[in-house]
Design a protein around this nucleic acid. Structure first.
Lengths: 212, 212
DNA sequence: AGCTAGTGAACAAGACACAGCTCATCGACG
DNA sequence: CGTCGATGAGCTGTGTCTTGTTCACTAGCT
């Protein structure tokens, strides 16, 4: 899809006015670009985040010649998709169907997800504790498979999950960030999948300057 | 940078009207999301492209338990930054400074780029042949550093660049790759773009459905 | 005010990236 | 609407980087 087509599609949200659509698109992109360029991470909940990442100099090699070359350190843009976007892309959770020019936020969608979330998390934790290994796999898997419904007995699973955990990582050195993580709720209300996306990077050196 | 702040910044392009800004943002993001979800690659020249990629199932391992688990095949969103975006992020080429609510397109920008382009490329080729490496790097770097002016002596290198070229197109099958050099022209001569990254396809499978 | 999403860390394996070159298409301008 | 030209995409091969998982907290969003 070309930019032209995108503008055209966007025009639908502007009563067909392509001029406004074009302006909207370029404004948004330009703004994001500037922000990222400034070093600011642009996080858009439900969509993803744009961030400037510094790539250290490394030896790369020309595939055709096999000759080594070194690319010096440089900053590159990086985009991390948000949970909702992943769900939509993966097929779980379909957008409301809204396509006209209104309804900024669907009502029930999130609510349902929220309801499911609790149970999903509990289930996972419980399973883990139970065996911490083989059986757990099955259990957890099963749970994922059927997270759908809203949540039959969510409150039931509460229990104490943290048992097994503790300080998993001292990592790095000075800065002990704790952070943790994530509970992923069920994306789609019924066909969900249980996502659980997380990630991490292996101790980098963290960085610097937050600037502005 | 939160979405709120983004909207605020965006509002500047809408006479400070945050409502319109918010609408513009959500419209753009939503539209892109839907397109990508449909499987369509959304390519925005100068910014980047959003695409849906299918990631096959693979065995991953739970770091804490060491237990293998398999993530099933799933689709994930992918974003590839465009050339211009990269330049902006990396520091080369700064946006026009436009930040108010007008001037959608600066006058001389592209024109200049175009002018420089031809020579730049030639230069690159020549340089490559000449040294194929060190000098070229420096040269380009220097250029970046002093992007401002348009281009000191670019025309000089014109010479016979294409000489080295010929039928490179064997592509794929033909092992004889040429390899040459490269040289990315000066990224920011003035305000233009810079870069020389290219890629190409050579007949692949073309694209699937173009859809409407 | 309430609740959700995002983040971090370690370990392992797969995937993307880079470089350089070329073609086709998009994009902008008149 | 047409044209000029820049931009995007790919191959190839090596290697780095990312993803994936779990768990809990906190900040941001609604």
């Amino acid at each position: 899809m070309n930019k032209t087509q995108l503008i055209d599609a966007l025009a639908a949200r502007y009563e067909g006015n392509r001029k406004q659509a074009a302006h909207a698109l370029e404004s948004v992109l330009d703004t994001i670009t500037r922000e990222v360029a400034r070093g600011e991470k642009v996080a858009i909940t439900g969509f993803g985040s744009f961030e400037k990442t510094v790539r250290e100099a490394r030896m790369v090699r020309n595939p055709q010649t096999g000759k080594q070359m070194k690319s010096k350190k440089k900053a590159v843009p990086r985009f991390k998709a948000g949970q909702e976007l992943k769900n939509v892309i993966s097929g779980a959770k379909k957008l409301p169907k809204l396509t006209a020019a209104n309804m900024p936020k669907p009502p029930s969608v999130r609510a349902v997800a929220a309801a499911a979330s609790a149970p999903a998390r509990a289930a996972g934790a419980a399973a883990k504790k139970a065996t911490t290994k083989a059986p757990a796999t099955n259990a957890s898997t099963a749970a994922k498979k059927a997270p759908a419904k809203k949540a039959p007995g969510k409150k039931a699973s509460a229990a104490s999950s943290s048992t097994a955990k503790k300080a998993t990582t001292a990592t790095k050195a000075g800065p002990a960030k704790k952070t943790s993580a994530a509970a992923k709720k069920a994306p789609a209300k019924k066909t969900s999948t249980a996502s659980t996306a997380k990630k991490s990077s292996t101790a980098k050196k963290s960085s610097p300057a937050k600037k502005s």
